[in-house]
Simulated assay, not measured.
Amino acid sequence: MAQDAPPARGARLGRVVSAHGNGFGTANGNVNSYPDGSAVSGVVLLLPSGAPHSTRRPSLLSHVYLRPLARALARAGASEGLVAHTVRYRSRGWNGPPGHLAEDATWAVEEVVRRYGDVPVCLAGYDMGARAALHAAGHPAVNSVLALAPWVPESSPGAPLEPVRQLAGRQVLIVHGTNDARTDPELSFRLAERAKKVNRSTCRFEVHSDGHALSQHRAEVIALATDFVLGAVFSRGYSRPVTDAFAAPPPLGLRMPLAAGFGRSLRG
């Protein structure tokens, strides 16, 4: 499948984040296992934020933001063979259709297939990276998408709407702070409404009083993300709030409040 990858010269996968050894290592490039022989059963690709238009190198801070989530996912999923990579874009800009960041995300999925074989992949993005995750979800190896504070462009007359058909058959979770001044939470709600019509396995959580960085309730957001990713990648049960959000009809399942303290009894 790698021969069909888009031209994403300069894009690459960051080092493996795992619970093996000191938490970082290099997976065998040709087989579905670590050098120590433990199997890789699923992969989460972290997609950092970006910019609408830029050819500058990606910001280091954009990668740092996702590091706590990557470590939490790798730690929680280590016993089941989950590994995490941060995608290193060729540049920080979306740069018009079809979107360089989305192309880089698709290339990264192809690279995962080349390295690990037929394993489920979750695309987990923040801000512009969340948009890239949603766009790249149509790859057959992708079974789930986590979109944190997604950047969704304003619709304008004559301009195409953000695509949603590629989300069919995937598990999709959108998380947005209600006080986000950088990416409009109402736009992500409208996107979720459209996505729900083509994919019932779509839900959206609102983090009340939180802003774009989702920093006031960081622990709850990471717990929610971990619950979703492990449940989606390994087809195991979700916590009750996530299960209820998927099952609830719009708009209830698309405006699900993230409760304070979520994760303290995660699967209780």
Rank of each mutant, 00 (worst) to 15 (best):
H208R: 15
C122K: 08
K197D: 13
Y116C: 02
V175E: 11
P157D: 15
S156G: 07
V172C: 06
S144A: 15
V175N: 06
L161T: 06
A130W: 00
G117A: 05
D118P: 14
A149I: 08
V145T: 05
H176Y: 05
A124V: 04
Q171L: 13
K196M: 01
R190S: 08
L134T: 01
C122V: 12
K197G: 10
E154V: 07
S201N: 13
R200A: 14
A124K: 11
V207F: 11
A192L: 07
T178P: 09
L173A: 11
T178W: 14
K197W: 04
G138N: 15
L191C: 10
A181F: 04
E193P: 07
C122Y: 04
G177L: 04
L123G: 00
G177H: 04
R182G: 14
A133T: 03
N143P: 12
R190I: 07
E186T: 13
E162S: 12
E154R: 11
V207T: 11
V145Q: 03
L173C: 12
P185N: 04
T183L: 00
R165Y: 14
V121G: 05
R194K: 15
R182Q: 13
I174L: 15
R170F: 09
L167I: 08
D180E: 13
A137T: 07
W151N: 08
S201Y: 11
C122E: 06
G158I: 07
F205C: 13
F189N: 06
E154H: 11
R131L: 11
R115L: 11
K197N: 14
R165W: 15
V119H: 05
V119P: 00
L161M: 06
A130V: 01
S209Y: 12
P160S: 10
E206C: 09
L187D: 08
V119E: 12
H208L: 09
K197R: 14
D184H: 10
V145C: 06
G158C: 04
A133H: 04
N199C: 13
E154A: 15
V119R: 00
A192C: 13
R115G: 05
A149H: 02
P157Q: 14
P150R: 01
C203W: 02
L148N: 05
V198H: 09
M128C: 06
S188L: 03
K196E: 02
V119S: 02
S155T: 11
L146E: 03
V175M: 14
A124D: 00
G177M: 01
D127R: 03
P185G: 07
P157I: 02
S144D: 11
Y116T: 02
V164W: 01
E193S: 15
Y116I: 05
R190E: 10
V172A: 03
E186P: 02
A141N: 12
A149C: 09
R131Y: 01
D127H: 08
A192Y: 06
L173R: 00
H176F: 14
T178N: 15
R170I: 03
P185Q: 12
K196A: 00
G129T: 00
I174H: 03
L167W: 00
G129A: 05
A132W: 04
Y126V: 05
D118W: 07
S188A: 15
G177Y: 04
A132V: 07
L187S: 12
P140Q: 12
F189W: 10
Y116M: 07
V164F: 07
T202G: 01
S156H: 13
R190C: 07
S201G: 14
H139W: 06
D180T: 07
